[in-house]
Computed example of a mutant assay.
Amino acid sequence: MKVLHVITALGVGGAEQQLRLLVRHLPVDSDVAALAALGPVADALRADGVRVAHIGMRHNRDLSALGRLTRLIRSGGYDLVHTHLYRACLYGRIAARLAGVRAIVATEHSLCETTLEGRELNAGIRGLYTATERLGRATVAVSPTVAQLLRGWGVPAGRIHTVPNGIDIDRFAYDEIRRKEARSYYALPEDAFVVGAVGRLVPTKRFEVLIQALAQLPAPVRLLVVGGGEQEAVLRGLARALGVEERVVFAGTRSYADDPAADPAPGVPSLLAAMDVLAAPATAETFGLAVLEGLAAGLPVLYTTAPALTDLPPGSVPTARRIEGGAQEYALELRRLYAAGPGDRTTPEAVAHYGIEHCAERLMDVYAAASVPDRTQTGSE
Rank of each mutant, 00 (worst) to 15 (best):
S110L: 09
S143A: 15
P307E: 06
L235C: 07
E190N: 07
F193S: 09
V268N: 01
I55P: 03
E16F: 10
L292F: 05
R74G: 03
E357L: 15
I73F: 00
D170T: 15
R206S: 05
L271M: 10
G124L: 14
D344A: 15
G124P: 06
R97Q: 06
Q17A: 14
R119Y: 14
A279S: 03
H59Y: 09
L150W: 01
G355L: 08
V194M: 06
L66A: 04
R200C: 12
R345F: 09
A42Y: 01
G298S: 07
C112K: 12
A15F: 05
D259S: 10
A369C: 12
A296P: 03
R321E: 13
E324F: 14
L272T: 05
A33V: 06
A251Y: 02
L312E: 03
M1E: 09
T319D: 12
L217P: 04
L128P: 09
E133F: 10
L22G: 02
A340P: 05
D191L: 10
A369H: 11
G166P: 08
V317L: 08
A36W: 05
A106Q: 06
A33C: 01
Q18V: 10
L271G: 08
S255P: 07
L334F: 00
R126D: 13
V317K: 03
Y186Q: 12
A368L: 13
V32Q: 01
A42I: 07
A42S: 12
L312T: 00
